[in-house]
């Protein structure tokens, strides 16, 4: 069943058909939410809310990029969740067990296919990038995640964040400049192929 059929069946009330879409896009949606909000629990909540909202608003989808349409809903869900969390006590970023002790590894980062060393490197890199992203304002963070992490073009990103193209261009440029120094601080965590990128500029 392709996406078009899944959508039409979902519109008829077939929840199983929509859940196939969920399984297909949940990684994309969760990663977007996590990178924008910066907290795993909040990202999970935003992801769930985004899918519920997408199911209810599916009739508003008029064709075109389903990914852009879905990410727009995710973006709104992230803003709502972020604001809600701002009003409530801060949840610690590091995963904890029931006793409030730090866990050795976050279950959502675990990948059974990779060895422990690779997993550790991936985790450190992920945390380093997230640390730098968290220093940006939410609007800048959303744009840079959409373009640089999700690989969207400017027009699609503009549609997702509901802003003019010039605004996206400007926010992206400023976000990247803000991230420069922060990311250089974590250079040793990056893969060897990345360590030499931009060395001409730094010399």
């Amino acid at each position: 069943m392709n996406l078009k059929e899944q959508i039409s069946k979902s519109l008829e009330g077939d929840l199983d058909a929509f859940n196939q879409i969920v399984l297909e896009y949940q990684s994309l949606v969760y990663n977007q939410a996590y990178r924008v909000i910066g907290e795993p629990d909040a990202a999970a909540d935003a992801t769930q809310e985004a899918f519920i909202s997408a199911y209810k608003k599916l009739h508003t989808y008029r064709g075109g990029s389903f990914k852009s349409w879905l990410l727009r809903i995710v973006s709104n869900a992230c803003y709502d969740e972020y604001r809600r969390r701002q009003r409530q006590p801060v949840v610690p970023l590091t995963p904890e067990n029931d006793q409030g002790e730090d866990l050795e590894s976050a279950p959502w980062l675990e990948d059974p296919a990779e060895n422990p060393e690779e997993f550790a490197q991936r985790k450190e890199l992920s945390n380093a990038i997230q640390t730098c992203l968290n220093r940006l304002e939410l609007e800048f963070r959303a744009v840079v995640v959409l373009v640089d992490i999700q690989g969207m073009d400017y027009a699609s990103a503009a549609a997702v964040v509901d802003s003019p193209l010039g605004t996206v261009k400007s926010r992206l440029s400023r976000a990247r400049r803000s991230l420069q120094d922060c990311l250089r601080g974590f250079k040793e965590l990056f893969p060897p192929s990345l360590r030499h990128v931009g060395e001409v500029a730094s010399e």
Binding site: Y30, I149, G151, L194, V197
Partner: peptide, 13 residues
């Protein structure tokens, strides 16, 4: 450099 690093951001499970 910034773009390259961000493009290699690990995908979370």
């Amino acid at each position: 450099y910034v773009k390259s690093v961000l493009t290699h951001t690990p995908l979370l499970s």
